[in-house]
Design a protein around this nucleic acid. Structure first.
Lengths: 246, 246
DNA sequence: TGCCCGGAAAATGTCAGACCTTTAAACGTC
DNA sequence: GACGTTTAAAGGTCTGACATTTTCCGGGCA
């Protein structure tokens, strides 16, 4: 008996959740290190005094958070997973997207958050932006000017442009944090119909931003970003106004 | 047979993962709305042609991401969950903490990301900060000055101070994004031994920040934050240097 | 001696069926 | 009409079994 009943502050049932929590805590507190193998399902079942399906449910919970990975076969089992940036990006984006879509977050609030965060990276990007990231940004700008590009395509390219901007800061932690903020805006942006005129205005601002970064001019980049925020905000408000009328 | 084998781009087995993905996509794409009830486990098992334990594993995966909630009893079942801010905070913090601890992110990089993001909120906080949030900040500053406070306690209070700062921006999306950045730094900060002298310096800077916000002076707040960043960075580098020597 | 192949073993993946517990709606009684 | 009781639906858990995958070890053959 590993888990004495006296130390359970969570009397509510659901054994698999309790077991998942116990293992998760062990990982977070560093009692289990990366790539360490967990006991087999049968052993865990014995340790926690539950059946194997219950243990499996707990392990699936952890797998869903990318905390462990499992491997079949003779020397397989569950291993503590090194959380990669790409996995973290994915979770971040999923969570942020759902948070926005399920809590009727207003366009204004989401927009404000996104641009506040992006403006935080701009000075670093202006300082460190690499040629290939600048090239990516120019490529996206070019794509945005293609005639016949759908609104969804324009939005996707916009997202790619802004992700290149934050990646330019050369700080992977920052990139990870911003991935959610930027990607989660896409569904909201997709509601906007981009006219040729508004596309032109956005492309012009994107160009100004890229130029400023290339010139290592943080102030100019910040001003252009502020203008882009104002412009985006206005586009969004127009859509909202049109919607409320209908 | 609902899932024809031809349309599976993921030939690798693991039925519960496939089923979880199918349901998750349905939720993300809006085919299932908040509070909608999923079919019962038995019905899902029949639909997907799998056994009930397999369905349950899939549901646990979704529950781990707070995408669904389950309820026992007669009209119970699994329901699409409205992802609350507090749930999102929790996931964000867990993921960010693990990301930092498992990828030997340097103190410098984490610190830079954190302060870049915080500085993004400062102008908004200076504009909107409410009296009760200011009071929270003052209370934390006071606690930080208590003699006999442990290093862990000092760090915890530091985190609380900074969270109040970002909450002051009055933008829940921003607060959510920053929760991870701030909380994930705590383990790194806990490695630092805070002398009476360094505590005094930090408290002085915290006071300057609070004063600036109260005076709605965004520039002064930004400058104080920059100084705090520099100071924190130096403390961290000293610790790293001492460690490498040992 | 050295290489290849096949079986054993260990672990996860899946299934089937049963029982318990919880919960709320439906029913009947006063 | 209000209140307690029954009952059925659904999730939570257990037992046991079989399938599948992968590694390792040992034996046969050149």
């Amino acid at each position: 008996m590993k888990s004495d009943p006296t130390s359970k502050p969570e009397p509510k049932s659901d054994l698999s959740a309790q077991i998942a929590k116990a293992i998760r805590d062990a990982i977070i507190e560093g009692r289990m290190i990366v790539d360490e193998r967990l006991p087999s399902e049968a052993e865990l079942a014995e340790q926690f005094n539950v059946s194997r399906p219950t243990v499996r449910e707990a392990l699936k919970r952890l797998a869903a958070q990318s905390l462990i990975r499992t491997q079949r076969g003779a020397f397989g089992g569950a291993f503590v997973n090194r959380l990669s940036y790409s996995e973290a990006y994915g979770q971040q984006i999923t969570t942020a997207t759902l948070l926005l879509s399920m809590n009727d977050v207003s366009f204004d609030v989401a927009c404000e958050a996104r641009y506040a965060l992006e403006r935080a990276c701009a000075p670093l990007s202006a300082q460190r932006c690499t040629p290939d990231l600048l090239a990516s940004m120019r490529a996206e700008i070019h794509r945005q000017g293609q005639p016949g590009l759908s609104d969804e395509g324009f939005c996707a390219s916009d997202v790619a442009f802004h992700r290149a901007l934050v990646d330019g800061a050369g700080n992977p932690v920052l990139s990870y944090q911003l991935a959610g903020a930027i990607e989660a805006m896409q569904p909201l942006m997709n509601m906007i119909t981009f006219t040729a005129r508004s596309r032109g205005a956005i492309i012009a601002l994107h160009t100004r931003i890229a130029d400023a970064l290339e010139a290592h001019d943080a102030t100019a980049a910040d001003i252009a970003l502020q203008e882009l925020e104002q412009y985006t905000l206005r586009l969004g408000q127009d859509v909202m106004a049109a919607r409320n009328k209908a």
